[in-house]
Design a protein around this nucleic acid. Structure first.
Lengths: 262, 262
DNA sequence: GGTTAGGATTAGACTAGTCTAAACTGTGGT
DNA sequence: ACCACAGTTTAGACTAGTCTAATCCTAACC
C-alpha cells in the first residue's frame, strides 16, 4: 500500500544545514535521536522545491477554481507525474495541502500562507530588478524564480522599504504585505471584454511568457499606460491605439486576454 | 578499494534541472543514455556546495600557504571529515582540485577560476547590501553566503555597474573583475606591525566574525577611516586614536591583527 | 626501527528530489 | 451495468549531500 511510509516515519533528524535558508519557522529541533519509533513532529522546514510547488498550486487554484490536478502541476512544473505524487505526499504530511489520492489538491491555511510568503518574495524581487537594476519586464521572472527561495526575511523587508512599499510588481500583480494580506480587488476586466471606443488604463499583464511580454512592451502596452479600444473584429482581432506612442496595434484575442485594464 | 566508484561511473545523466542555476559552463548534455558503460565526460555542472568548498579552499590556501587539510575544511565548513573526503573526491574527479588521498589539497587553474567567480559574486552582493540596502558591515556576510550561489552572471554584471565598478567590498576585500583578475597588492600591514605614533588609513578588516566586526565598527574603525597609533604595551594592548571620533580605543593584539592599514 | 596518537578514509545509512516503467482507479459512454 | 482510457500511483533506481562508527595511514617520538 503505502510506499513512502519508510521515508515518512524516520523523518526526525532534521539538522539545521547552513546555506539552505528555507523558511524554517521556529524549528523544534529535537536531538539526533537514535532511530526510535514514534517519528513524527518534524514537518517544519520548507525546502525551495516545496515552495515552488506551493506557489504553483496557489496560482493554479486561482486560475482554475480550485481544480488543481496532478498533471496540471506536472506540466507547469516540468516534472513527471510520479514526482508530483511523491511531493504531494510530503506536502500533505506537512499539513500544507489537503489531498487524497486520485483527488484534486487544495492548499490548507498554512500552505496558503507559505505560498503567499513566496509570492511576496518573488514579486518584491521582480520589482527590485526592474526599478533598481533596469531589467525589462520579460527578464524579471526567471531571475526571481531562483532568488525567491534565498532572500532572508530581513532583506525582503528592506527591499520593500527601499522601493517605497510598492503595491504591485512590474507586471501589475499585487504584492502581499508583510502580514500576507493581498489585494484581491477584481474591478478589472480583460481587454477583449471592453466595449468598443472606450478608453482604459492597463493595470496588469497576466502572462509570464517572455515572448508575449516582450511583444506587448514593444507596442507600448504595459501597466500604467492608456489605451483606447478601436475595434473588435468578428474573427477576434482587437485594434487598440496606444496613447503614449499614438500608434495603432492589432492583437489576436489570445494575446489581448492577457491584458487587464480598468 | 575504491568505494565511490559506483557513484562516479554512472555519472552521466546530468539533467538541466531548472532553479538550480549553478555555474554550468557550456554543458555538453549528452542524451539520457541507457546505463551504457564508459560513463565519464560529465564533470561540468558545479553545485552550490561545490562552490562553498572551492571558495573555502581558496581562502585557506591564502591564509595557510597552500597547506589545506581535510580537517581544516571540515572545521570551517562545519561538516564531518568523512563528508569532506567524499566531496574532495568529487571535486578532484571534476578537475577542480589536485589531490591524493592523505595529502593536502590544492586548487587547479579551473578550480581557482571557479573560486574567484564565487568570490566575485559574494563580494559584489556584500557591496550591494551595504550600499543599496544599508546593511551593517557585520550583517553583510551571512546573506551573501547564500546569495552568492544564486545570482545570474547577468545580474552580477548589472550590480557591478549600478554600484559604479567598486574595487573592494565593505570589508575592504578586493573584488575580482569580470575577467577574474584580482588585486593582489600587499603593500598593507597589520595594525600591530605599525610603528608607534604613526598615522595610518584602515584599508581592510580581515575578520568575518560578526562580533569582532560590530565591535570595530562601534569604535569607528572601518575601511577608509584614519587612525593614529599611540602606544603598544608590552602585554600586547594597542592604543589608537580614531580621527573621525577623536576618541581613543584599546585593542588587544588578537583583534588589532585583523585590521589592515596603509 | 617500532609504536602510537591523531588525521583521513571506508562502510553503510539516510533525506530530498527526481526518473522510467508498470500497475492501478474513476468516470464517461454505450 | 460494464469497459476503456486517461489520469494517478507504485516500484525501484539514481544523484548530491550528509552523518556515524569503524578502520586505516602517516608522521613524529623514543
Amino acid at each position: 500500500m503505502q510506499t513512502r511510509l519508510s521515508q515518512l516515519q524516520i523523518n526526525c533528524t532534521s539538522k539545521p544545514q547552513a546555506h539552505t535558508r528555507c523558511v524554517d519557522t521556529t524549528e523544534p529541533m529535537n536531538k539526533p535521536n537514535q532511530r526510535s519509533a514514534d517519528g513524527h513532529e518534524d514537518g517544519v522546514t520548507i525546502t525551495p522545491k516545496m515552495e515552488d510547488y506551493l506557489r504553483r498550486i496557489y496560482r493554479l487554484q486561482q486560475e482554475s477554481e480550485g481544480r488543481v490536478s496532478n498533471s496540471n502541476l506536472a506540466e507547469t512544473l516540468d516534472v513527471t507525474r510520479a514526482t508530483v505524487t511523491s511531493m504531494l505526499d510530503t506536502l500533505s504530511s506537512r499539513g500544507l495541502i489537503d489531498w487524497q489520492r486520485y483527488r484534486p489538491v487544495r492548499l490548507t491555511a498554512k500552505g496558503e500562507a507559505t505560498a503567499l510568503q513566496v509570492l511576496r518574495r518573488h514579486r518584491l524581487v521582480e520589482t527590485m530588478l526592474a526599478e533598481l537594476f533596469g531589467y525589462a519586464l520579460s527578464e524579471v521572472d526567471a531571475e526571481a524564480d531562483v532568488l525567491e527561495h534565498h532572500i532572508s526575511s530581513r532583506l525582503c523587508q528592506t527591499i520593500e522599504q527601499e522601493l517605497g512599499m510598492p503595491q504591485t510588481d512590474p507586471h501589475g500583480d499585487p504584492i502581499p504585505d508583510s502580514d500576507l494580506d493581498i489585494d484581491r480587488t477584481t474591478d478589472v476586466s480583460s481587454l477583449p471584454t471592453v466595449a468598443e471606443s472606450s478608453t482604459v488604463e492597463v493595470t496588469r499583464l497576466l502572462s509570464q511568457d517572455e515572448e508575449i511580454l516582450e511583444y506587448l512592451v514593444s507596442l507600448g502596452i504595459e501597466p500604467g499606460k492608456t489605451l483606447s479600444l478601436d475595434e473588435i473584429t468578428p474573427i477576434g482581432m482587437i485594434t487598440v491605439t496606444v496613447e503614449s506612442t499614438a500608434r495603432q496595434a492589432n492583437l489576436p484575442r489570445r494575446i489581448a486576454s492577457h491584458v487587464l485594464v480598468k
